[in-house]
C-alpha cells in the first residue's frame, strides 16, 4: 500500500506545531497502525530526521497508552479497539491519513502525538480508591454477598483503560465517561459504598479543576470507547453527585 500521512509535529509543549506530510510505501495491509508508524520512523531515522513520537506500550489493546486521532476519529475508523489493534486493511491504497494527538486543554501535548494524561491520575487520586486496612487479616472476598447484576455492571465499568478516547472524541473535551466509569466501578460494590459520597464529590471537583468540558449527552464517547463503556455510567455519576451534594454533611 502507498499512503500519504499528514502528521502533527510539535517539538515540545511550548512549540507551535504544524501538520507535516509524509509519503509511505510498501505498507502491508496486515500491519497494525503502530507497525506502520514504526516503518515510517525507521525511514526517518535512516534519513537522519527526528522520528515521530507517539504513545504505545502493550500493543494488545489493554494498556490504553496508544492515543492517536486518526482521520477524524479516536483510534481510527474501527470500533471497540485501540490504535494498536487497528489494521492497515481498514484503509485503501492511496489514502491520505490525518494523524493528530488528543486535543484537550487538560491533555497538553508533550511532543508530536504524545499527550500528558496525568489529569486522569489526579482525578483518581482525588477519590478513585477504597480505604482498606491491610493489617494482614484480609477478609475472605466471598464473605460479602454481591448481586450478580451489580458485580457485572461494576466489572463492565472497571474495563475502562483510561486511554482518553472519550475526551478526545467529545466535542466538549469532557471526561465524564472516564470519571463516571471510575465512580461506578466502586459505587456499585459494598466496599466502595463506604466512601461513595466523598468520592464522587472530590472526583468531579478535580475533573472540573483540570479544565475538562461539560457533558452534553451527544454519546460520541460511548461510540468511540475501545471498551464500550456505557453512558449509563454517566447517569449513575449524575445521580450519585446529585444525592451526595444534597446529603453530604461536610
Amino acid at each position: 500500500m502507498k499512503l500519504t500521512l499528514k502528521i502533527w509535529r510539535q517539538a515540545d509543549p511550548q512549540a507551535k506545531g504544524e501538520t507535516v506530510t509524509y509519503p509511505v510505501n510498501d505498507i502491508s495491509p496486515d500491519m497494525s497502525f503502530l507497525e506502520m508508524m514504526d516503518v515510517l520512523n525507521e525511514e526517518l531515522v535512516n534519513k537522519g530526521e527526528e522520528p515521530v513520537a507517539f504513545d504505545h506500550d502493550c500493543r494488545e489493546g489493554i494498556c490504553g497508552m496508544c492515543s492517536m486521532y486518526i482521520n477524524g476519529e479516536a483510534h481510527g475508523p474501527d470500533r471497540g479497539i485501540t490504535t494498536c489493534q487497528l489494521h492497515m486493511r481498514k484503509f485503501k491504497d492511496g489514502d491520505t491519513i490525518y494523524i493528530e494527538p488528543w486535543r484537550a486543554k487538560a491533555f497538553p501535548v508533550i511532543k508530536d502525538l504524545v499527550v500528558d494524561r496525568n489529569s486522569f491520575d489526579r482525578i483518581m487520586e482525588a477519590g478513585g480508591f477504597v480505604s482498606v486496612n491491610t493489617s494482614g487479616n484480609t477478609q475472605d472476598a466471598n464473605a460479602i454477598p454481591i448481586p450478580k447484576e451489580d458485580a457485572d455492571e461494576a466489572f463492565d465499568a472497571a474495563t475502562c483503560i483510561g486511554c482518553g478516547a472519550c475526551v478526545a472524541s467529545c466535542k466538549n473535551s469532557s471526561a465524564m465517561l472516564f470519571v463516571s466509569a471510575k465512580v461506578s466501578q466502586l459505587a456499585l460494590l459494598p466496599q466502595g459504598k463506604v466512601e461513595a459520597k466523598r468520592r464522587v464529590l472530590n472526583m468531579v471537583e478535580q475533573m472540573d479543576k483540570e479544565g475538562f468540558g461539560n457533558c452534553t449527552n451527544t454519546g460520541a464517547c460511548e461510540v468511540e470507547c475501545p471498551k464500550g463503556i456505557s453512558l449509563s455510567n454517566i447517569a449513575r455519576m449524575n445521580r450519585e453527585y446529585l444525592s451526595a451534594s444534597l446529603t453530604a454533611k461536610d
Binding site: 502533527w8 477524524g72 486535543r103 461510540v223
Partner: peptide, 27 residues
C-alpha cells in the same frame, strides 16, 4: 457551558468526523 466547553479544546482537530459518532441535533 458552551463557553467553558470551547475553552476545554483550545486547538481544534485538522480532520474531525463527529457525524460518525453522534447525531446532528445533539451537536
Amino acid at each position: 457551558l458552551t463557553m467553558k466547553n470551547r475553552q476545554a479544546r483550545p486547538q481544534k482537530y485538522a480532520m474531525n468526523k463527529p457525524e460518525t459518532n453522534s447525531g446532528i441535533s445533539s451537536r
